[in-house]
Design a protein around this nucleic acid. Structure first.
Lengths: 121, 121
DNA sequence: CGCTAACGTTAGCAGCCGCTGACGGAATCA
DNA sequence: TGATTCCGTCAGCGGCTGCTAACGTTAGCG
């Protein structure tokens, strides 16, 4: 019934894609310039096939855009693909920082009064 | 001779640690509360051993702090551990966004003059 | 049409990784 | 001291993953 959107990549796919050093290198390579598959492959010591597979992973993670021109395919980094990662990071950061703030406060109270500081009950 | 610092975890270790769904769950679990190893393990359906190994990975990535008390070890999320990830994200984002801006500008020029817009030479 | 260029895809393989079970160590208590 | 609790570590195993070689596909050219 409903119109299915362009399937938003999960945080899992994102982090798993970025966990590979070579995939991050590819991403940096096409961050400033649009490159064809062959050009990307030429920058590495592994086979063209391996790079093609990495590119597929990055594409599925929403980190790459593809533009076909003749027999060639041009790739470029997709900044919005990193939005999910930023969200994940902000949530983690906020949660932990909030706790850290609470701890500092409790510690200060401790040094003043000598009162015990345990886990928040 | 020199004083060796507390060895800063690499971006690779960071992303690889975060790539595991269960490790992210552990991180969320200790983001707001300090928990003992056993308590963390109790929250999952896998063995205590598996959790211990995940905790080790997170610790090596600088994402966890450990506090020993008697036979127990208390764990807590370490917000500064995510700093490296933020740096990585910002650099990627900046690079891609800069390119995107350049492209929009070029495209606007194209729609006005009909001039070809290729890769920056 | 045949031929080439530029790719993606598949099968198969080696290495990594997460899991379990068994074990060992440190702290606590009788 | 011995027994128990809490926990990390090790060996081994199955599944995943990154790699290569061979093949299939599409676009362009003679």
């Amino acid at each position: 019934m409903g119109v299915t959107g362009p399937d938003i990549p999960s945080t899992d796919a994102l982090l798993q894609a970025l966990a590979e050093p070579r995939r991050r290198a590819i991403l940096r390579l096409v961050a400033n310039d649009e490159l064809a598959a062959g050009e990307i492959a030429a920058a590495f010591d592994v086979s063209r096939t391996a790079i093609s597979q990495h590119v597929t992973v990055l594409k599925k993670a929403g980190l790459l855009t593809e533009r076909r021109e003749g027999t060639r395919r041009w790739y470029r980094a997709r900044p919005e693909g990193l939005a999910g990662l930023r969200t994940f990071l902000d949530e983690m950061w906020a949660g932990s920082l909030d706790t850290a703030r609470r701890l500092v406060e409790a510690e200060r109270g401790l040094s003043d009064t000598g009162e015990e500081v345990g886990r928040a009950g």
